[in-house]
Design a protein around this nucleic acid. Sequence first.
DNA 1: TTATACGTCGTACACTGTACGTTGTAAACC
DNA 2: GGTTTACAACGTACAGTGTACGACGTATAA
Lengths: 256, 256
Amino acid sequence: MTSNSTGTGQPSRTLALLWGEPSTARRRKGPARSVDVTQVVDAALVLADEHGLAAVTMRAVAERVGVSAMSVYTYVPGKPELLDLMVDATYHRMARPTWGGQLWQDRLTLVAESNRDLLTTHPWLTEVAGLSRPPVGPGVMAKYEHELAAFDDTGLSDVDTDAALTYLLGFVQAHCRAAHDAARVTTDTAMSDAEWWATNQPILARVLDPSAYPRAVRIGAAAGEAQGSAWNADRAWRFGLARTLDGLAALIRDGT
Amino acid sequence: MTSNSTGTGQPSRTLALLWGEPSTARRRKGPARSVDVTQVVDAALVLADEHGLAAVTMRAVAERVGVSAMSVYTYVPGKPELLDLMVDATYHRMARPTWGGQLWQDRLTLVAESNRDLLTTHPWLTEVAGLSRPPVGPGVMAKYEHELAAFDDTGLSDVDTDAALTYLLGFVQAHCRAAHDAARVTTDTAMSDAEWWATNQPILARVLDPSAYPRAVRIGAAAGEAQGSAWNADRAWRFGLARTLDGLAALIRDGT
DNA sequence: TTATACGTCGTACACTGTACGTTGTAAACC
DNA sequence: GGTTTACAACGTACAGTGTACGACGTATAA
């Protein structure tokens, strides 16, 4: 298992785990469980938040909850399902402010910003596959419900509301994934932008012929200088959010 | 190495590989190389296209080019660099139609569509990290140059042009990643949408209380019925592209 | 009390990327 | 022409991954 996929495994078992088995009341037969599914998930979350998704190995999770590696499998069918539970739990804990009488633009901005906060606090979320079609758990549902409510008086049809929300979240995810990637490059390489440039300057100067790539060289340089680096996350965020809201505004005539 | 990262490794060595060492003329000392860097990259590309990114292992690549596993390392410093080369080579082979006198909307649509085609033909591209900040190779540069040219008469500043292109490509990547994820779920599980629904219907019916998630249940059902499935790629594409162009139009006043 | 179901865990397997050392070869030097 | 030397190729090995399997002990059901 090299990929960090989500949504595999027998679905019904996963669903039961997500929604917290109703048959918990009935006492099982064998020895008592020494820990809890939520403890397993929490351990995985701590590892992911503190050391990245790569640090979430079954053995590491096991050690953190104080059981052997294989015992984790009595709480969770496998790693993909564990990732499902992690995603749903993280969504579940998001703050959900009540929507007041703001403009729809302000509400959608809040939706976008709270998702950016989420993906900034938990960067591993941008690495798990299937984020766009997440597992149907209570956290995912609560988040979906809350964010749909932000569209309440936009006058959009149900289908368009769903599409608009998906579109908005798509932007946020793309942005945060790019930001995370950019951050990780300088982290992994242990090399600042300046160092990278200094190292590669000679080769780049020879190879990036301005007559071969006139626009690329000019615009790349302009963008780099204006932003102080090859890519500026805040600037890209403001640009993208403004474009996204403008794009949706074309659909939402009058919504105030 | 569990993640499929890009952009790691000594940069200058990678750059030299990307741009094809100028010192190729000088004959080396030892025995002749039995293959070629491009053959290694091509082998990796075939594996990725036909069996997914997970099938691209150093051993598999080695076998395909007819050398031992470790010999691959005389052509490529490591796997991250191989991924860099794969990305750049794929970009390099994209079709680059000349921009005629179309409207800017039509040109940007073509940019978006050709990128969607690329990511549909090579779905593994959506899985490699760092796609948003790809390696600076000839393929990446050529693609960047060509796509910047699509903005030639939009009247945008250099900085805005770069931001707008990044924004447009961000949408395409987010969309294709979602589409690929959705496709992979039904592939991996070997379970159609209908089967999944049939299996989980009992649990979902009990758990998705319409009074707890009024909008989510109603809108989710509406979206599902309207699209014949939980998510319709073509519909999402048209919606998203229209929104994106509308959003950019707010920036591009008059550009005919 | 016995039988049964289940939690725990050690071992093991297939697979990953790649470090290391050996071997053979072809160009460079005397 | 013989020696030196740099380098391609490769076999082996190691640490690390997810997880299948079977042994063992325990707490409930009969």
